[in-house]
Amino acid sequence: MMNSAVVMRDLSVTRGGRRVLTVDGLDVAAGSITGLLGPSGCGKTTLMRTIVGVQRFAGSVSVLGLPAGSSELRHRVGYVTQAPSVYGDLTVAENVRYFGAMVGAGADAASAALAAVDLTDLAGRRAEQLSGGQRARVSLAAALVGRPALLVLDEPTVGLDPLLRRRLWEFFAELAAGGTTLLVSSHVMDEAEHCDRLIFLREGAVLAADTREGMLAGTGTTSAEDAFLAMLGEQVAA
C-alpha cells in the first residue's frame, strides 16, 4: 500500500459555470516526484489550486492527512504558481526573505533557497530586471524557503534553458530523496522522464495514473507521449 501525501475522492470543480475537473479517485505518493501531465487547458492548474487550498471544490481532498485548505497545512505545503508571483520592485533576496518570514524561516534559509536555484549571484537584483526564467526561479526559491513537506510546482521548468532544467530536476530528485513530496505539472510530455509517477490529465479528467515504469510497461511504449496516446486510444475504444 503506497503512502499518500494527497488523497482525492469524488472531486469536482466548477469554474466560470463550467465543470472543469472531475476526479473519482486519485492519490499522490509521498516522498516521490509525481508528474501531472496533459495539454494546456486540461485542468492541471485547477487540480493544484485545489490541493493548496485556494480553489473551491466539491468532494473530499486530504493533504498530508488533513482536509485541503486547513490552516495547519499552510506551513507544510509550498506552491509555485504558473506565472511567477514575486514582487518586481523588491530584490531577489528581499522576495525570498519576505516569503520566508511568512513561514518563520530566517535569513540563512533564504540564502540556502537562493543557492538551491542558482540565484546567489543575482540576490541584489530587482525581480523586474530579470528574465522570465530567472523570475520563475525566484518564485521557486520563495516556496522552498520554508522546507515544505509537499511542494506543488505548476510548470516550473517551462522556458528554462536545457542545462538549467536538468539541474532543477536533479535538485527535485534530491528533495524527493530527502522525503519531500513533489507534484510537478507540465504540458511537455518529455518531462515525464524525470518523474517517478505520472498522472495523465485530459479535458478535466484523469486518463491514467501509475508509476512511470508501470505506465510504459502497461501500454507497451517507451515514451510518455506514446503512453498518453495509447491510453487515449483505449479510452476511445472503451
Partner: peptide, 9 residues
C-alpha cells in the same frame, strides 16, 4: 502574490 500569500500562514 496575493493568492500565493494566502497559501502561506
Amino acid at each position: 502574490t496575493l493568492e500565493r500569500l494566502l497559501t502561506t500562514p
